[in-house]
Amino acid sequence: MIVCLAVISKANAPLLVRTYVDPSLGEDQADTTIRFHHIVHTSLDVVQEARAGDRHVPACRRWCAATRDMFLGHLCPMDEYEVYGYVTSTQVKILAVLEETVTSRKSELAALLHTIHGFYVNYQLNPFSPLNQPIGSERFKLAVDRQVNGYNADIG
């Protein structure tokens, strides 16, 4: 299941980080958030490597150029989690941190991240939403939460 979903700007600043951890596990909410911030931050290096157009990266590692897909697939394992990534043409990154309980269904995850990309584009089309700043829109958060919870319910 997805435990954290992050939208990162092209300058690598977090626009939105949502965590989906069961509060009944007794973990402090602030601790959890910080931990996932850390995981997401670390994974950005891998995204950077994976991204095409970066001349410092050997061609064999430019996954995106090879697959011609915005969905980067599995990026790296991180503690007990697995990180999956999605990069748009405008370098906005969407990262999903998964707790692998069952074999995750990749195509569904790709579709989910693609949908969230759509939400982001729609959010940006609103001229009143600030560019390259943390997303405050409740509507966007709600839409993302609904998608992720739907995915988690399907898997679980």
Binding site: A52, D54, R68, S89, H117, V121, Q124, P127, L131
Partner: peptide
């Protein structure tokens, strides 16, 4: 600039660009 930014985000939603 503002319009250009937002519009581009939409237009390359399904288009993969290499970054050149």
């Amino acid at each position: 600039w503002d319009v250009g930014c937002r519009l581009t985000e939409r237009l390359c939603q399904t288009k993969l660009l290499s970054g050149e």
